[in-house]
Amino acid sequence: MAAILGIDTATEACTTGLWMDGEVRVRHAVTPRGHADRVLADCQALLAEAGLSLRDLDALAVGRGPGSFTGVRIGVGVAQGLAYAAGLRVIPVSTLAVIAQAVAEHAPARWIAVAIDARMEEVYWGVYRRDADGLVRPAGAERVCAPRAVSIPDEVGACVGAGSGWDTHGVALQARLQGRLREMEPGALPHAAALLRLAAAARERGEGVSPAEAHPVYLRDRVTHTGGSGG
């Protein structure tokens, strides 16, 4: 049996879930704050309901960002601590991909263009393709940039726009897609079920890192005003 605990706290959603051979239990709360208050208690409740302990798990999945810097670190820090305690491997998954996967489960189009509002007139951006197995895969690299500068691979066809960036910058992003946009889901957020689906597939491919190697991905590295490229 494969059992994976998943955590994503990178956005307004504090979403945790437990995967047991494809059966998924989820705790999902959308609050701007309070992730630190509930993430561990949610993990505890998920395991208790399933009658499992942390050591019964095969891996720990975490949304490694991009998103809120602090939110990303709470998720990754908790994943590091849990995985270290129980001797588990960590499967880091892009938070953009998790949003794409969550939307792909019901989307009327094969392509998902994910944009998270990154403030400072920028978005975290990634384009994903839903394949025959139902999983999303990235088309091009993730990046942080101005809405008018987002990159769209030529192969991209009819497309769903997902994530908070479509709320703030929908007009500019739609212009970039040049008529390929079928639908917008600006309220789309990461969901643990989607995270775990991607993580289970990654685990089958043998992916995973040690807890110490599980690092946040911020995309935005310019975080100071005094020059330099920052962290």
């Binding site: 561990l40 590091q80 601590g81 849990l82 270290y84 305690a85 129980a86």
Partner: peptide, 19 residues
Amino acid sequence: LVGALLVGASVARALAWGA
């Protein structure tokens, strides 16, 4: 610093509960 404190707190709380 709240953000810095949160890193140590997240890892410590998760590690302790997990163990």
